[in-house]
């Protein structure tokens, strides 16, 4: 579960084309990193995967994305997003909610009322996000009372609580300090046993450390996609080599 097949995906913001025909197979229960310079379309690409892009006013897409063989455009975006979760660049816990309420928000606001079920989901998700030990005795504290790194793990727990099969992460550690970043990276490695993870990162070392596969984007084009070890040691494309050796970007 969680195999994504992207076929000739094109995306626009108004008249501006942001993705020029992307085709890629994102394997299930692996970590796939999306790298590339600013403005190359990495964020647009990941936002197409849970239809956060094509639901923007003025934005559109063509081509197809299959999740486990079924087109994501055949479902209502609201339902798709229960299967394809997302974590954002800046931690964004709901300020009006406690830690507990944040974790179960996705379930509760979709109609789950049973207390026992919510409790169990909260504990399970917080444990998976490696946050349970730090917050289990203060679940009623405000979500924004946590540190930046804890807030980001809270957001990961919140995304996991709705039991997606794919987890998209848009530069999840770029607003965090090195220690918090390391914890997120360890978490990503642990989570891939259960989830397909697609992570956008600015940091090539991070991609090399945690990703099984790496996709290099440039100017809206998917230049190269393959096992991380190959992309970083023997890239096939000159542009990939130039980028990873730091000649631009």
């Amino acid at each position: 579960m969680g195999n994504l097949s992207v076929r000739n995906l094109e995306a626009w913001y108004g008249a501006q084309k942001a993705l020029l025909g992307i085709t890629a197979e994102i394997p299930e229960k692996q970590v796939t990193a999306i790298i590339g310079p600013s403005g190359c379309g990495k964020s647009t690409f990941i936002r197409c995967l849970n239809r956060m892009h094509d639901t923007l006013p003025g934005a559109k897409v063509s081509g197809d994305i299959l999740l486990d063989g079924k087109s994501i455009y055949d479902q209502h975006p609201v339902f798709l997003r229960k299967t394809v979760g997302m974590v954002f660049q800046k931690p964004n816990p709901f300020p009006s909610m406690s830690i507990y309420e944040n974790v179960v928000a996705g379930l509760r606001l979709n109609g789950e009322r049973r207390k026992a079920k919510l409790r169990a989901a909260a504990e399970k998700s917080l444990r998976m996000a490696a946050l349970w030990d730090e917050v289990h005795d203060r679940l009623n504290y405000s979500g924004v009372s946590l540190s930046g790194g804890q807030q980001q793990r809270l957001c990961i727990a919140r995304a996991l609580a709705v039991e997606p099969s794919v987890l998209l992460m848009d530069e999840p550690a770029s607003a965090l300090d090195p220690i918090a970043t390391q914890r997120i990276e360890e978490l990503v490695t642990a989570l891939k046993k259960t989830y397909t993870i697609v992570i956008v990162t600015h940091n090539m070392q991070q991609a090399a450390r945690i990703a099984d596969f790496t996709a290099f984007f440039l100017n809206g084009e998917l230049v190269e996609f393959g096992p991380t070890s190959e992309i970083f040691t023997k890239p096939k494309d000159k542009r990939t080599e130039d980028y990873i050796t730091g000649r631009f970007g």
Binding site: N50, M52, T55, P77, V78, F79, L80, R81, K82, G85, M86, F88, K90, N92, P93, F94, P95, A105, G106, L109, N110, C155, R158, A159, V162
Partner: peptide, 11 residues
């Protein structure tokens, strides 16, 4: 970002 977080949870 708060609204996006809600959207991304399928709410």
């Amino acid at each position: 970002t708060i609204r996006e977080a809600g959207d991304a949870l399928g709410i």
